[in-house]
Design a protein around this nucleic acid. Structure first.
Lengths: 202, 202
DNA sequence: GCACATCCGTACCGATCGGTACCGAAGGGG
DNA sequence: CCCCTTCGGTACCGATCGGTACGGATGTGC
């Protein structure tokens, strides 16, 4: 354990950087990148503006770190879903997980990866593109998983894995938008189950 | 024809107000309400800032008028879809229309009603709420249409019209997000058809 | 041709935006 | 105990935000 916390020089940080990042996630999640001002962020994070810049670099850097933390935390269901034994179970876990994450009591509704920066001004284009890549990454993971399912005979040989992945991500995006519009968890669960009705049988 | 254009007093407007509105639609569509600055708008519309305010009131008023024009113009497929004879035909027309409108060459990708203001700062809350109401209105129209279908025996008596409407709107929202992420029209058409596979039979 | 109403654009408003210079405070290493 | 490094916050930066005062231009009605 001697390798942990090598005690960096200088005055120690007076706030928990991960906790502050969690607060930033909530602000970006509910207001989007452009709608979240530095005053919003610093107030929610409980730190001053220069502290934010020392710890995270810039508003855009902070967003990327917040997205990373969001991915590892609140959307961890996605990684678990990929480990389900059948393609149908994967699809079910993804959509149910999406509904739950998008309608979590005490958290903003919807999905940071969708509403963080869907349409933006030119200045925020890098953030917008990062979210596009984030969603694309999810599709890529699903595509590989469904290709495995085809290879294993869990899906018909003629199945297009990419189409199924895109379909799933599309429904998940739609659920996120509806959750942000105020749709309830039970409603969206029914929608998810309806969407799963067209899933191909092996 | 004597009732048209009663010739208001004062200096006549030097630009076509509907054409200017069309340009504003494109700006809000591609950059969102918050991402669209007045400089972006005035430059695209080819008018000065005070002209914009005289003709449209405020940035928020302009957005509402742009949304109205968008609804009557580029999403007119929706009203036509409701007139289809069967619920399945309605659903097909809505999703196919959504794909086409969201991937129109020469226009921004996605849907103004989704990416115009999905997550915003507090100042833009009214706009955000207006878009929520806009999407909710679409669901209400679909719900009434599918209730008709149930009454007419076109859908099973136990069918929940609201659930079907919410499902359709959810998929449409997801398609809009994917289109904004760069998915192609053929891809999204396949996704739409896959989503239609779970449509209930009469 | 004169009064009136509206439109035109330049030039400006206060507020807020993201970002930083600065200096005192707080720790470890010599 | 002093030096060095980093963190703390106050107070500020130029740029841009949405919005408007104002004076000249352009039309109709009398």
């Amino acid at each position: 354990m001697s390798s942990t916390t090598p005690v960096p020089p200088g005055r120690p940080r007076a706030f928990d950087i991960d906790e502050a990042l969690d607060r930033a996630v909530l602000v970006f999640w509910s207001k989007g990148f452009e709608g979240a001002s530095l005053d919003d962020l610093t107030e929610a994070m409980g730190i001053s503006r220069p502290s934010l810049y020392r710890a995270f670099g810039s508003k855009e850097d902070l967003f990327h770190k917040a997205l990373e933390r969001y991915t590892e935390g609140l959307t961890a269901y996605f990684a678990r879903a990929l480990a389900e034994p059948t393609s149908a179970a994967v699809a079910t876990a993804v959509l149910h997980g999406t509904v739950e994450a998008a309608t979590m009591p005490g958290f903003p509704t919807g999905c940071l990866g969708v509403q963080g920066a869907l349409a933006t001004g030119d200045d925020s284009r890098p953030v917008r593109d990062a979210l596009i890549a984030w969603r694309e990454d999810g599709i890529a993971h699903l595509t590989r998983r469904f290709q495995q399912a085809v290879d294993a005979g869990d899906l018909p040989p003629a199945t297009d894995p990419h189409l199924l992945a895109l379909y799933l991500r599309t429904v998940a995006n739609g659920i996120a938008v509806q959750a942000a519009s105020g749709s309830s968890r039970p409603e969206l669960l029914q929608v998810a189950n309806l969407a799963l009705g067209s899933w191909p049988k092996p």
